[in-house]
Write a protein that binds this DNA or RNA. Structure first.
Length: 228
DNA sequence: CCCTGATTCGC
DNA sequence: GCGAATCAGG
């Protein structure tokens, strides 16, 4: 079987779906693709979400194909047209890019992919480890940014930033999102981003604030004495 | 580019 | 039934 949509899995899907999470996000939490999420959601008849492109052919109640014609349908009808239109194709190529060679995807080498955290699906095989620069530091800078004056929140270990573990930006973001969603914790960064000891405070935050009392005090300073 | 959800259709 | 491939808008 391709996949077992257990009752529990379906229940989780429904729940997350109702929580308004994006399909991709739900997929990440369930370790499936967003396509799987969307497909299943439709089959389950879950309430559609506001889609960026939903209404176009649909809202068009009148003379219109009412359908988006995917490449397959198009190819089919094209073939038909070709047959009926006796040679001389009046239209060059709609908007399709010329028949791209499109090499086969999965290569034999895929078998020896480096082990992954298991739970995480192996997406982005290629670009997964190059974006390592701006993201981590950004995370650290984000919090203290509210307080330009009291910058330099945590001690700087002056650590030899040697072994960057290269934290994928997306992953980091997702982790943070998840944390925030499932239970707020103090997001004050501690340590040097990129070093193994980097982490967030994690204490219980003040109501409505991303930081705990201790760090909120540092993060939010009055802007008094601005003039002069 | 990134993201989003929707749809089609081979499996 | 499933979901990759694709589309299409932001």
């Amino acid at each position: 079987m391709a996949m077992e949509w257990t009752d529990e899995l379906i229940a989780r899907l429904k729940e997350l779906w109702e929580q308004g999470l994006s399909t991709a996000e739900i997929g990440r939490q369930l370790s499936i693709t967003k396509n799987a999420v969307v497909g299943k959601a439709h089959r389950l008849g879950l309430p559609p979400r506001p889609s960026p492109i939903r209404n176009k052919a649909a809202a068009e109640g009148s003379a219109k194909p009412a359908r988006t014609r995917t490449r397959k349908a198009e190819a089919t009808s094209e073939a038909v047209e070709e047959k009926a239109a006796s040679a001389a194709p009046a239209k060059p190529a709609e908007k399709k890019k010329a028949a791209a060679p499109k090499v086969v995807k999965v290569s034999p080498a895929a078998a020896e992919e480096p082990a992954k955290p298991a739970s995480v699906k192996a997406d982005r095989p290629a670009g997964a480890e190059k974006p390592a620069k701006a993201s981590a530091p950004k995370a650290a800078a984000a919090a203290p940014a509210e307080n330009p004056k009291a910058a330099e929140p945590a001690a700087r270990p002056a650590a030899p930033v040697a072994q960057r573990k290269v934290a994928p930006p997306r992953r980091v973001r997702d982790t943070i999102d998840r944390t925030l969603r499932q239970g707020p914790t103090c997001q004050w960064p501690l340590g040097d981003p990129g070093t193994p000891d980097f982490h967030f405070c994690g204490a219980t935050p003040l109501p409505g604030k991303p930081y705990c009392a201790e760090h909120a005090a540092i993060a939010y300073v009055k802007i008094r004495d601005r003039r002069h």
